[in-house]
Nucleic acid binder design. Structure first.
Lengths: 167, 167
DNA sequence: CAAGAATAGTTCGGTGACGAACTGTTCGTC
DNA sequence: GACGAACAGTTCGTCACCGAACTATTCTTG
């Protein structure tokens, strides 16, 4: 690869050639979206490899993780978890079924509002999370490892601005 | 939301509190990854909405799109497409089946290497792509709409650096 | 040049996600 | 305080995806 160019530069250049002179195409937008996708995919591949061939899956960890990091840690409802994780309530039911079956969480109907269900991690759940969280953070740091602390701050500033435009 | 803070700031602050004093946790890394996920999710939701309730699905478009933007446009193998799109070859077989059934592409075994299959868009395929590509770009521009041209360049510079560290 | 390794694509079985429909509970309001 | 709307969670049917096994070619090498 030419120095200073990544594979997405090629992709964008190729596409730009098809759109020559058309102002509707913005290579910087296309590049930014594609690059973010690329980076997240790299992270996901690493995660998948780390959990491959185990009984404790990436989804299990993902759900457990969001449970541990909730505003009121160690307690959340299925709907809250579904939103945090980014899946539907129906999918969350399935995920919680599995976690409950393997003894990682408990489900208890909230006595104050009997429609709600309170999900809590068990001791085994906490331990499973604790076992994997460090390696998970290490993988995240790996994929962004080329950036200095200052650059990371700058990156977050830009991303934050984009998000504020959406919220 | 406090001025200048996005929802991910809250998420990171909450998590940081759990890790107080532990240098293994880096809020900037966590923030950057979570924000990229957030932005791509926003894009994906918009795309899903645009294709909802139609016969022509988001996956159909996705596949067709990568076919049109290949190095040799209008011709690619299933494996190339699978890698470009980010699914397995098995999944790509299914996607191509559907596109072929609906007359968007043709499959022809390469006479020079009869293991390979050459995928090409039909006229209908090109037209379908053309119909959706503009709106798709508009959606991408929407989710990054808060950023100026300069900021987009800066964003790409940072992301590029991260990717070069991975490639 | 024959036999085994590598490659391209497909088939198959299983899993997780989704939207829609359903059950049970609580809220709102007249 | 009764009844319809809203809400929380689950169930159900369908669909796309994945890894592994399989078929058919082509490459390699002794």
């Amino acid at each position: 690869m030419t120095k200073g160019q990544d594979s997405i530069d090629l992709h964008v250049a190729r596409w730009a050639a098809l759109w020559e002179g058309n102002p509707a195409f913005d290579g910087e937008i296309e590049g930014a979206m594609t690059r973010m996708q690329f980076i997240l995919r790299a992270k996901n591949r690493r995660d998948a490899a780390a959990f491959a061939g185990q009984d404790f899956t990436m989804e299990d960890y993902d759900t457990l993780h969001h449970l541990m990091v909730q505003p009121y840690p160690t307690e959340a409802t299925p709907t809250q978890l579904a939103e945090a994780v980014g899946v539907t309530k129906a999918s969350m039911t399935g995920r919680l079924d599995r976690l409950e079956r393997s003894g990682m969480i408990t489900r208890e109907t909230d006595s104050a509002n009997r429609r709600r269900v309170l999900v809590r991690p068990t001791r085994a759940g906490r331990e499973a999370w604790d076992k994997y969280v460090h390696a998970g953070m290490r993988r995240e740091q790996e994929v962004l490892g080329a950036l200095s602390a200052k650059e990371l701050v700058a990156l977050n500033a830009l991303l934050r601005k984009a998000i504020l435009g959406l919220e």
